[in-house]
Amino acid sequence: MYFLLEQILNGVSSGAVYAIVAVGMTMIFGVMRAINFAHGEYYMIGTFGGWYATSALGLPYPAAILFGVAVTIVIAYVIGKFVMQRMIGAPVEASVVATLGVSLVLQNTAILIFGGSYKFFSAGYIEPVFFGDVGIAQQRLLIILVCILVFLGLELMVGFTRMGKTIRAVSQNIEACEVVGIDVKKVVMTTFILGTALAGFSGILTAPVNVSVYGGMGEIITFKTLPIIVMGGLGNVRGTLAAAMILGIAESLVAGHFGLQYRDSVGFITLILMLLWRPHGLFSSRARF
């Protein structure tokens, strides 16, 4: 029983990471109708920023989080300005090629600057806390807590602020937004920076438990995120949270009961099943787009 509980808790903690990354990707999809294949790379940039701050600048971990997010925002701003803004109204293929290209450029820039070898992240709070017989690292509790806060914040923002309302408006109808005077470019840019900053943030949050930092680390995250945003329903924030938790828990149970070697197949099997039976997601009754 405790074993099951602990495996579920492990699943929730990896689900929380997936959720923070995926929600950014799904919001960007909402306003741009484009899958951001470079999304994992912002996760990588955030992690590198945090790693650089702790190991080269000697900053404490909380400051490293700020530093990493700031670096991600700066890079996202540049790429948003030069690449993503041009994708508004462009055909879908254009954004696929553009974001794949951005992903290669970012990966290889990181490798050129820091070298191709693995770096180890040694900051953070990895001592375990035990609730009875169930143990979990402090860092993972922090991740779960941050995930709850991020989703509460997003719900409030999307529901009640002007920015949130414009994001919703743009994801429903770009032409109408332009007619009523909403600055679509600005909304796309803000959403893009918010989404990528969340990815970078989640990268630094997980670095203490995932330990390794290297140029290609974003790829795996991008591919884990894809089944989640499909399951959650593209553009659906709440759906993303539920889908991320389902995938995280399913992976954890598979790794615990069948063996680690089968874990990564869970995401891909889910993706295939979803595309076969419910291509617009678990929670939408019909596709919105």
Binding site: F3, E6, N10, S212, L253, A255, G256, R263, D264
Partner: peptide, 12 residues
């Protein structure tokens, strides 16, 4: 697998 980063379930 190479590149694996999450060993929690197994270690539990």
């Amino acid at each position: 697998k190479e590149g694996e980063v999450d060993f929690r379930s197994v270690l539990t």
